[in-house]
Design a protein around this nucleic acid. Structure first.
Length: 274
DNA sequence: GCGTCGTCCTGCGCGC
DNA sequence: TGCGCGCAGGACGACG
């Protein structure tokens, strides 16, 4: 499932192919989903940037083409088995592959994210200078809910999904069910460092490609961070830090992986499943 | 305003 | 072997 490292990997590979090129045509099979993207046709790409898990093609004429890969989407330079849209640029073609159709492709006036509330409310970029422990603490303090769903909301910090939220919480030795607004300053600093460290490392490794193969780079190659996962997908296995047994629970409707021994806190109150 | 839950969608694994 | 069921996930709207 594409999170910040996967989307950043895609951006780095596609940017040289599309920057400065005109988008000539968008061909798709689903007008209900992708018709608004057609407003981007005929415009030149000024820059391809990333905000959280969103890819944003900034186009001439005050238009942005926003791409969200959902949980199974990918942008590829060759056609896949579930290609939903084909973006024809001058001298380059990009295929939007999305088996489960959770991805989005739409054009908006630059900066107008009224139809994308998560993007509009999104917290700071975790690898930017603006993401300080002080800023993070202030944003976490707004949420009374557990850390895991709070992080998935994108409001304390941008770009974390199910995998990297679990990995960051493990690195910070924080239980996923701890209320987000109840962390000590030292715990916020630990989580701040952990988020940045996990994401930096994952970007370096080209993201995570899981067994379902849902995410691959644009050239079809996998990422390699999955072999460094400490908790995600390791339920029942030994914790790499303390030797405890990794548990899988459901929190905020999402599978959550953690070590009850060294991530302490409210482990005893967590419902378990699976 | 905030948190929770259901919905969207489809490939895959599992049990029968 | 083949069928049916449940699960996985991010975003968002409805609801309390």
């Amino acid at each position: 499932m594409p999170e910040l490292p996967e989307v950043e990997t895609v951006r780095r590979m596609l940017a040289p192919l599309v920057t400065g090129r005109r988008l000539l045509e968008i061909e798709h099979d689903d007008p209900a989903r992708y018709a608004t993207a057609e407003a981007a046709v005929g415009r030149r790409v000024l820059v391809l940037r990333r905000r959280g898990k969103y890819l944003i093609f900034t186009l001439e004429g005050g238009i942005e083409l926003i791409v969200h890969l959902g949980m199974s989407g990918s942008l590829r330079i060759s056609e896949g088995t579930h290609t939903r849209a084909r973006l024809e640029f001058e001298e380059a073609t990009v295929f939007f592959n999305d088996p489960r159709r959770f991805g989005r492709l739409q054009a908006v006036p630059t900066g107008d994210y009224r139809t994308l509330p998560t993007l509009a409310r999104m917290g700071p970029e975790p690898l930017s200078r603006g993401f300080t422990a002080r800023v993070f603490a202030a944003r976490l303090a707004r949420a009374a809910r557990p850390l895991k769903p709070a992080l998935l909301s994108q409001e304390p910090v941008a770009g974390l999904g199910n995998i990297y939220a679990d990995e960051a919480l493990w690195r910070a030795r924080l239980h996923p069910a701890r209320p987000a607004n109840a962390l000590a300053p030292s715990e916020v600093r630990r989580l701040h460092r952990a988020v940045r460290a996990v994401l930096r490392r994952a970007v370096d490794r080209g993201g995570s490609t899981l067994g379902d193969g849902a995410y691959t780079r644009p050239d079809g190659e996998p990422g390699y961070f999955q072999i460094e996962h400490a908790v995600y997908g390791r339920a029942g296995e030994a914790c790499l830090r303390c030797g405890g047994t990794i548990e899988r629970s459901v929190l905020g409707g999402r599978s959550t992986h953690f070590c009850p021994r060294c991530q302490g806190g409210q482990a005893a109150t967590m419902p378990t499943r699976g």
